[in-house]
Design a protein around this nucleic acid. Structure first.
Lengths: 146, 146
DNA sequence: ATAGAATTTAGATATATACCAAATTATGGA
DNA sequence: TCCATAATTTGGTATATATCTAAATTCTAT
């Protein structure tokens, strides 16, 4: 498995990548632009950069698709999001609040930090906005023994 | 009291402001530059912007000093830092780890979120890297009743 | 085959961060 | 006091991110 840090992509690119992952298969520029309320040209430029980084395959005029690396990375991004949302829910935020607040702060959580929180929580399988997948060595590897 | 959101200043500016607060009184450009390992000119520019925003008073060639607004804001920044560090410590991070990890993620925590976490924790007076001041209506005001 | 929709390209703007080199100001020692 | 040196600021440049508009290109469905 890759050694992600969680800081490979900027905040907006992470949002786009997660969206592409959730939508699955081929995703169109216009759809992403509509979802994030930005101009299509803004999305085109970002997609080009995400593609250059190897996370998606961009077929001009046709759409984007995750690469295997992108899929693996997106899985981490979603896990990070859900772990952070779960943590916030412990402070009394409703599932909706926890999810939207997580969206704002998750960007700065490193993979190592997420893994430690995950371990400390006993590798929960459910968050407030979906299941938490613990594939491979993910958060059980490294650091303190489980 | 002011209605801060926590996003008034960029990440680096927040770091500089917290440092100025901790150092107290008149702080010199070179000192800040040394502390953050950047060129003095980089600091000068940032200080100019922080001053324009009203948080510090910059006397060219002599140093900077917090304004009342800046002092109040810095107090919030320090409280935010300590609340976040305290939260991280609950997941098994040592005080040092919690403090340095908090430094990386606190920027994106809004005042509202900090206040909610603070309330949920029962307004703790101690964190892992110092005391937590709860002046004015701070985290007990607004939102759900305490 | 082509009009209209989708998309990309090109050119601008804005913010944040940072550097270097040159100019300016401050300050301490003779 | 005067000046050499240190500190600081200015001005110019650079990168990265994010965004837009307008024009050009490509796709697609009639």
């Amino acid at each position: 498995m890759q050694a992600f840090t969680g800081q490979e992509l900027s905040s907006k690119k992470v949002s786009y990548l997660k969206y592409i992952y959730m939508r699955g298969d081929l995703v169109k520029t216009t759809e992403i632009a509509a979802r994030f309320d930005v101009a299509p040209s803004t999305v085109t430029k970002a997609l080009g950069e995400i593609a250059k980084a190897g996370y998606i395959e961009h077929t001009p005029y046709h759409g984007v698709k995750l690469t295997p690396l992108g899929t693996e990375y997106a899985r981490f991004l979603v896990r990070r999001h859900r772990i952070v949302a779960l943590v916030l829910s412990h402070f009394g935020l409703t599932p909706e609040e926890a999810c939207s607040e997580a969206e704002k702060i998750e960007q700065s959580f490193s993979k190592d930090l997420v893994d430690r929180i995950c371990r400390s929580l006993g590798h929960p399988i459910m968050s407030v906005c979906g299941e938490i997948e613990h594939d491979h060595g993910c958060c059980s590897a490294g650091g303190h023994p489980v």
